Amino acid sequence: MSMGGCIILIAVGAILSFATDWHMKGVNLTLVGWIFMIVGLIGLFVFRSVGRRRGVVMPPAQTTVIEDERNRRI
């Protein structure tokens, strides 16, 4: 999930929790909104931690080349 997807989840969750007055039988929209917001926050934290790991670049291993003068043809 990208950072934009996490922000959308948080926004939709906030709308469901705080800005709606719908009542559906068998579904608590306030709870669903809170769940969306929590999942969005967890996604943001995971996205940040993975992004930090990708930022670390290891230098390539350098190999030593030794030329053998005996096998060199002129």
Rank of each mutant, 00 (worst) to 15 (best):
M1H: 12
M1R: 13
M1D: 07
S2V: 02
S2A: 09
M3G: 12
M3T: 14
M3I: 14
M3A: 08
M3R: 15
G4A: 11
G4P: 01
G5Y: 00
G5M: 08
C6V: 04
C6W: 05
I7W: 09
I7K: 14
I7T: 12
I7V: 14
I7G: 06
I8K: 07
L9T: 04
L9K: 10
I10R: 10
I10T: 06
I10C: 05
I10Y: 02
I10Q: 04
A11H: 06
V12N: 11
V12T: 14
V12M: 15
G13A: 12
G13N: 05
G13M: 08
G13K: 04
G13Y: 01
G13V: 08
A14K: 15
A14N: 14
A14E: 13
I15F: 15
L16A: 05
L16F: 10
S17G: 14
F18D: 14
F18E: 13
A19R: 09
T20N: 11
T20P: 08
T20A: 03
D21L: 14
D21S: 15
D21Q: 15
D21M: 15
H23I: 06
M24E: 11
M24T: 12
M24D: 06
K25A: 11
K25I: 11
K25M: 10
G26I: 02
G26Q: 09
G26Y: 11
V27S: 05
N28W: 09
N28Y: 12
L29H: 06
L29P: 00
L29M: 13
T30V: 15
T30P: 01
L31G: 11
L31Y: 12
L31C: 10
L31A: 15
V32A: 13
G33F: 01
I35K: 03
I35R: 01
I35H: 02
F36W: 07
F36K: 02
M37A: 12
I38R: 00
I38M: 06
I38W: 01
V39T: 05
G40V: 03
L41P: 00
L41Q: 07
L41K: 03
L41C: 10
L41E: 02
I42S: 03
I42F: 09
I42H: 00
G43Y: 04
G43T: 06
L44W: 03
L44T: 07
L44M: 15
L44A: 08
L44Q: 09
F45W: 08
F45C: 07
F45R: 09
V46G: 05
R48F: 03
S49C: 07
G51W: 03
G51D: 10
R53C: 09
G55L: 13
G55M: 13
G55Y: 09
V56Q: 09
V56I: 15
V56A: 12
V57N: 07
V57K: 10
V57A: 03
M58Y: 03
M58Q: 08
P59I: 06
P60I: 04
P60R: 08
P60G: 02
A61K: 04
A61M: 05
A61T: 07
Q62L: 15
Q62Y: 15
Q62P: 01
Q62K: 15
T63M: 05
T63W: 01
T63S: 02
T64E: 13
T64C: 12
T64F: 15
T64R: 15
V65H: 08
I66Y: 10
I66R: 12
I66M: 11
E67M: 05
E67Y: 13
D68N: 13
D68Y: 01
D68M: 04
E69F: 00
R70N: 10
I74A: 00
I74L: 00
